[in-house]
Design a protein around this nucleic acid. Structure first.
Length: 424
RNA sequence: GUGGGUGUAGCUCAGUUGGCAGAGCACUGGGUUGUGAUCCCAGGUGUCGCGGGUUCAAGUCCCGUCACUCACCCCA
């Protein structure tokens, strides 16, 4: 398909998607807008952090930390890592700057690139784009539900329908160790290959969402975390579901769901889309009540999500949703000859100063080529100017949608175009 | 990290039992210096991914290698 050596000799690093045009930013900004509506404030964070932050925050035993990080020593000999996820950085910033000293919860949102050294695949990239929110400082199931509702609203706003929200509870520190021991005893009796046994040793929960049928069959009857919740965690879980009903957010329970990051407690969730192939998660997250303390801050709870912008975009393409492709510009200038070009350059400048998106046919193309460029620009109107019009003190305003054309006065042409656009 | 598939023009691809490297789309110009989205005409010097081998002859067969891709794993 693609040549190994591209024209010019350079290729983008492996596994990194590049987006040209408005499609990507439209998806990202739509997701961000829903977080803004719920009062989450923007936070701009470093793209790399102290490696130890992720080792401690995300968890040494996770795949993300143990084999997928872009880590290197900087020139001062400090080990730094390109951020593989957003929550650890947000929590670090909250602790470092005492953002929890004011009113709680602290509600923050972020957007940007993250990095994981994985084998690229459909929907899986080494540089991935996420939009995320974090609500820190309050342990209230209504806040869990709000976070879920914000994500759901974002996907709905994109026009997506072919996804579902799966939720479960991972319990808390009071009962998880017992459950883990019980699950380990169950797994030890199964016939599993060596890599899977190794996984069971590192994190037995992870074996539960194995996709292979031969493994799934053996998992029938495995002990589930939702049956081993503390009274408090069970009440929290039940309350979250009630609040989701109040918010009109649909969900299904998936007690086999596991998260790959160690910090999750209680509520965890994943948005799953059916049209994406193997990498079907378009967003995920949950509660992390121990993370603040783990990273040296006050023992405050938190809840948040990360949404995959790349995957949401692929989902939009799969559903053919959200394609309001606005033109690059609204007005396109077509000059015939040098004198006309000098005059049109000024008019296009005036249009831009008036807030109208406008462009011009450069390169002294023929009339036909210039009109073709006007068509491709997506403009509503073309402004055609030649010697004949200059003499008459007029300029031709052509409606590219219906082909109609009328002459308007050259003086004040920009204002007249503005009026035409207003009238629609 | 493990396994499968695929590499031919900017893009999507065809190329038969080994015999002159092609089509569509896109792009540029012209038909028409006063009109685009339609129509007609013209415009291609491609490391056939790369290296080696077999052969009179390799895009085609063999070996190696690289890249891409899908799945496992993992996750957004």
């Amino acid at each position: 398909m693609s040549a190994q050596v591209p024209p010019g000799g350079f290729a983008a690093p492996k596994g990194i998607p590049e987006y040209v045009g408005p499609e990507f930013t439209t998806v990202r900004d739509t997701l961000v807008r829903e977080a803004d509506r719920a009062g989450y404030a923007h936070i701009e964070l470093p793209v790399f952090e102290d490696t130890a932050l992720y080792a401690r925050g995300v968890g040494e035993s996770t795949d993300v930390v143990s084999k997928e990080m872009y880590s290197f020593d900087d020139r001062g000999g400090r080990s730094v890592t390109l951020r593989p996820e957003g929550t650890a950085g947000v929590v670090r910033s909250v602790i470092e700057h005492g953002l929890d000293k004011g009113g709680l919860p602290v509600k923050l949102r972020y957007a940007g690139p993250f990095f994981r050294y994985e084998r690229p695949q459909a929907g899986r990239f080494r540089q991935l784009q996420q939009v995320g929110v974090e609500a820190i400082g309050v342990d209230d199931p209504a806040l869990d539900a709000e976070v879920l509702a914000v994500a759901d609203a974002g996907f709905r706003a994109l026009g997506l329908r072919g996804y579902r929200l799966e939720i479960t509870s991972l319990g808390d520190a009071t009962t998880r160790p017992q459950y883990r021991a019980e699950l380990t005893r169950f797994l030890e009796k199964l016939d599993l290959d060596e890599p899977t046994r190794e996984r069971a040793r590192i994190n037995p929960l992870r074996v539960l969402d194995d996709k292979r049928p031969e493994v799934r069959a053996q998992l029938e009857g495995a002990p589930l975390m939702v049956d081993h919740l503390s009274d408090e965690a069970a009440a929290h879980h039940a309350a979250v579901k009630r609040y989701l009903d109040d918010l009109g957010v649909a969900y299904v329970e998936n007690p086999w769901m596991v998260r790959g990051l160690d910090y999750y407690t209680k509520t965890t969730f994943e948005f799953v889309h059916d049209g994406l192939g193997s990498q079907s998660g378009i967003g995920g997250g949950g509660r992390y009540d121990g993370l603040m303390a783990e990273l040296g801050g006050p023992a405050l709870p938190g809840v948040g999500f990360g949404l995959g912008v790349d995957r949401a975009l692929l989902a939009c393409r799969a559903e053919e949703a959200g394609h309001d492709v606005a033109g690059r510009v609204e007005v396109f200038g077509v000059p015939l000859g040098e004198a006309a070009k000098e005059r049109l350059v000024g008019i296009v400048g005036a249009l831009r100063r008036a807030g109208i998106r406008a462009d011009l046919a450069y390169g002294n193309r023929g009339l036909k080529g210039a009109m073709k460029a006007a068509d491709r620009s997506g403009a509503r109107y073309a402004l055609v100017l030649g010697d004949r019009d200059l003499e008459a003190g007029e300029i031709q305003l052509k409606d590219l949608a219906d082909g109609s054309q009328s002459a308007i006065a050259l003086d004040g042409a920009a204002a007249a175009v503005d009026r035409a656009l207003q009238d629609g």
